[in-house]
Every structure is written in C-alpha cells, then in structure tokens.
C-alpha cells in the first residue's frame, strides 16, 4: 500500500500521507494545549477557560470543519474508485476456496488459471469475486483496496496496474488453518503478451 502500482492504490496512498500530516498537526495541537495547562497561573489570576472557547470553539466547530472536508474528499474519492461502465474494461472472475484462487476470463471463456491472475497493464480490470465455501477477501495491496468474497454474492472490484509486472495478492479474511498461505499473484502484461495470453499462450 505504501508502494502503489496502480491508480486506485496511489490515490489511497496519497490520502494516507495527507491524513498523517494533518492529524499529526492536530495531535501536536492537543498535546500543546494539554501541556500548557501545567504552566503556573500568573499572579493567581484564573486562566481563561470558558465553555465558549473550549466546548463550542475547540469541541464543536474545529472538528466539524475538518471532518466535513475529510468526509467530502473521502466520498468523492470513493465515487471515483467504484467500477463504472467503461468500454476499455477487461472482465475477469475470481473464485476463492480454502485455500486457493481460481481465475477465469470473460474474453476467453474456456481458460482458467490457479492462483495466478493475468491482466493487461495500463487498463482497468473488473474482478468479479465469489467464493465456493467460506468468506474470503481479494486484496492486491499495491493495486487497490480489498473486497470480500461472500457466499451467494458476487462483488466487483476495479483494479489497474500501471506497468507490466507481478503483484502479490492475498486473502484478507480469516478462513481457518490454511489462512497464512492463502495468497495469489497478479501478472500484468503489456499489450502483446496480453494478446498472446488470450489466445491461449503463456
């Protein structure tokens, strides 16, 4: 996640760094206010401490402004990341079971691969995620967030890899004793390799 390899993971990574910086500043502010409570009162005069400053100002207004902006940005980003109709999109299916992944490809209906998902690089891919037994979760940290495989439901996740290469993937929902090794990999191909994969090569 800290080393994004696709647009979805990159925007979430930027969101993280932004939040980390902003929240570190907020944390520092709160700690400073806490520390200042210990400074000795000047000539016995009470320090300014009104409900207006502390509760309305710092307690209500200050967090509301930050939270509304963050919420708005989060929703906007979420809207961008959910799968939408796109003529360029490649559709694949991922079926999880204890403890393997079977991938199939809409463009080549007969073809299935075990524990390796092949995708074209630089193009959006919609992964339709299902399960044959318990709940699992499809997660390729460098490409996008995760989405669960739930019995009886099909969930669609949009992923995209910028460059050809191999990306590690793992199931991220506890599924029993084989959970540690419930991993897979995603291989992103350049246009020619992808074409030859579709034609049965590779």
């Amino acid at each position: 996640m800290l080393d994004p390899g696709g647009p979805a993971a990159r925007s979430i990574s930027m969101l993280w760094w932004g939040m980390l910086i902003a929240f570190t500043a907020i944390f520092a502010l709160v700690m400073a206010l806490l520390a200042l409570a210990w400074r000795p009162a000047r000539d016995g005069a009470a320090r300014s401490s009104s409900e207006r400053t502390w509760i309305i100002g710092l307690g209500l207004v200050f967090p509301s402004v930050i939270l509304i902006s963050l919420l708005a940005y989060g929703l906007w980003l979420g809207e961008r990341l959910i799968p939408r109709d796109d003529p360029d999109v490649t559709r694949v299916t991922a079926e999880a079971r204890r403890w393997s992944w079977t991938f199939s490809y809409d463009q080549n209906p007969g073809r299935t691969t075990l524990n390796v998902l092949h995708i074209p690089a630089g193009r959006p891919v919609d992964v339709a995620i299902t399960t044959a037994d318990v709940i699992h979760s499809f997660w390729v940290p460098r490409l996008a967030g995760k989405l669960d495989a739930i019995p009886g439901h099909v969930n669609v996740l949009r992923i995209e890899a910028d460059l050809p290469g191999t990306y590690a993937g793992q199931s991220a929902e506890f599924s029993g004793p084989g959970y540690d090794g419930h991993t897979f990999s995603v291989v992103a191909h350049g246009p020619e390799d992808w074409q030859s994969f579709l034609e049965g090569g590779l």
């Binding site: 996640m1 919420l71 940005y73 989060g74 929703l75 979420g78 940290p141 967030g145 991220a172």
Partner: peptide
C-alpha cells in the same frame, strides 16, 4: 485520529483486516 482515518471508506478498503 486513526479511527477517523478508517472511517474514510477508500482508506478502510486498504487497511481493513
């Protein structure tokens, strides 16, 4: 503060579980 972070949907998609 980390709680507010995970309340943001796309970030939670990455760090959930």
């Amino acid at each position: 503060l980390t709680g507010v972070m995970v309340a943001v949907v796309p970030f939670d998609w990455q760090v959930h579980d």
